[in-house]
Design a protein around this nucleic acid. Structure first.
Lengths: 130, 130, 130, 130
DNA sequence: GTGGTCTAGACCACT
DNA sequence: GTGGTCTAGACCACC
């Protein structure tokens, strides 16, 4: 099971799905031509309404990340390298924005966030360049 | 005028107010015992609905940043103690660690993360110092 | 009443609404800051389900043609001149595509279409340049 | 191979087939009495579902372009008479007039319309001559 | 079987 | 009051 949703999150279910597919495409977990689960199948797996899955798939299709073969199913679209980099950046920005949003609620300061980020990066030993 | 809101922001008006009061307290612009403007006064100044200001004040009170003197008004509460700061830092580090963890899976670089963080902080207009 | 839909058309109701708002914005009938009818009001006027109107408004908002003021309503967004020209071209292309689509079903040829277009343009005496 | 289809086009497969047969008849590539490939043969050639081919043949038969000899196959019908051409032209002119009418309201120029028409014709791959 | 559209009705957050 | 989300269930075109 590639996808999972948290019904208690304040993030809408369909946005959770969109975000996870976006992330999977950006990370290369999903490649062009790969099929997505059918609307009904995914809805059954996630125990949510098919319309909710359909809303997520519609958004992915409009964003150009998937193509729909009528009567066949939904597939990951071919993306140019530049487009895929855009996706990667987009997903990254969303992750960071989520952090900042939560930090705002907690009253954390930018300096604290930057310091903690440097700490965590050092600990995780991420590659220093793309 | 200490406070200002942007009605077109996606951040709820009442959270904008909460965040700015939080920042003012953290920055020492507002000190324990200082009065906040009355709900009606602030609503008139910001040209927003008094209910919205009241919602913000309610959240501040719940968060322990202010105390309400019935019939008198709202005042900045005594600052939370050092233990509360520790807790804040712990939560913050967890949030940042989660971001770094997800970023690693996506192959994002530290430089990208730092740049996006600065972007998001600028957009959110968080207080610039503790 | 600015908007009208044809329930017998094969074009989805929500796309009819989107198309008409797009056209109204491109033609300057709707200007930045103008309010759109509320979702419920328009649904009642058109005698369709509010969800259908909401789907149209959601698409307009994602396309950047409208801004939503939470709790207030939906308004036409400010557009750059370039963006507005893009809209105009987009609407024009949609109109032409609709013609070509119908022509395809009828088995009309490109030469016929071009000849009839020239005829109709001469009859209508459209301005010869923008 | 006379026919080819694009499974990723938004034009239904069966309509692609119908349009191509129509074009072939109009262009004289197919003459009255000529046989069409069998449903199964064409489906195999195009690697699509025989039901889809059958749907296309059904529409051609309904449109009067082909006749079905039970147990024998499908053949191109005798061409429709001059009156049918007149009717076609009448409908075509109405469609074009509608476009020009709407274009005038939007302030579109003849040059733009002609350019977009050429674009759309190229994209739709209509037959290039009657 | 696939996805697409629409209706109906519910609940929510925000103003 | 406003729009946003979700469920349930229907019907459709296409393969």
């Amino acid at each position: 099971m590639l996808l999972a949703v948290d019904p208690r999150s304040s993030v809408p279910l369909y946005e959770q799905i969109v975000g996870q597919v976006r992330a999977a495409v950006a990370a290369g977990v999903l490649s062009p031509g790969d099929p997505l689960p059918s609307v009904r199948q995914l809805a059954a797996d996630l125990r949510i309404n098919p319309n909710t899955v359909a809303a997520a798939y519609r958004e992915l299709e409009r964003a150009g990340l998937t193509t729909v073969q009528r009567g066949q199913g939904t597939y990951v679209a071919a993306l140019s390298d530049a487009r895929r980099d855009d996706e990667r950046a987009r997903v990254g920005r969303v992750l960071v924005a989520r952090l900042v949003d939560e930090a705002r609620r907690l009253g954390l300061t930018p300096d604290e966030l930057r310091a903690w980020l440097d700490e965590a990066l050092a600990a995780a030993a991420l590659p220093t360049s793309a």
